[in-house]
């Protein structure tokens, strides 16, 4: 279980954040710290890949929405990709699929970011 980060090649100010495991009390604090650190550096685009997230609870959602809110306030963006069927169900149930821009895969998200910038 881990949270990792790396700059997105050829896209200035964009970072890819990967999450592997359960996005609950186990990983949410680490993800929150990672996102806060990147936003504090005025990172323009954060792409969070959730393809390897096996579970999410309200704490995980809260962590992502808090980052989305901070990003909105400073003119940055938080984009998500790779949600499995269960995560899609949970996001849809609380309307967060309308808050976030979500792509099916990392490749599609990165292509969209390159096009948009």
């Amino acid at each position: 279980m881990s949270v990792w980060q790396e700059p997105i090649p050829s896209l200035t100010g964009a970072w890819l954040i990967g999450v592997q495991g359960r996005l609950d009390h186990t990983l949410s604090p680490t993800l929150e710290a990672t996102l806060n650190q990147l936003l504090a550096q005025q990172t323009m685009h954060l792409l969070v890949d959730l393809a390897e997230v096996t579970y999410i609870n309200s704490g995980g959602l809260r962590c992502l929405v808090s980052a989305w809110r901070k990003a909105q306030q400073q003119g940055s963006s938080v984009t998500l990709c790779g949600l499995n069927g269960r995560l899609q169900e949970i996001f849809g149930m609380v309307g967060f699929d309308r808050v976030f821009v979500i792509y099916p895969s990392r490749a599609e998200a990165q292509a969209a970011l390159h096009t948009a910038v």
Binding site: L61, R62, V65, S66, R69, V94, G95, F96, R98, V99
Partner: peptide, 22 residues
């Protein structure tokens, strides 16, 4: 809970999505 697509200026709740009571 938000009910309209993101980036719509019509729904002010989107600027402050509810994160309690979930």
């Amino acid at each position: 809970l938000p009910t309209v697509p993101a980036n719509s200026a019509a729904d002010s709740t989107l600027s402050q999505p509810q994160i309690g009571g979930l």
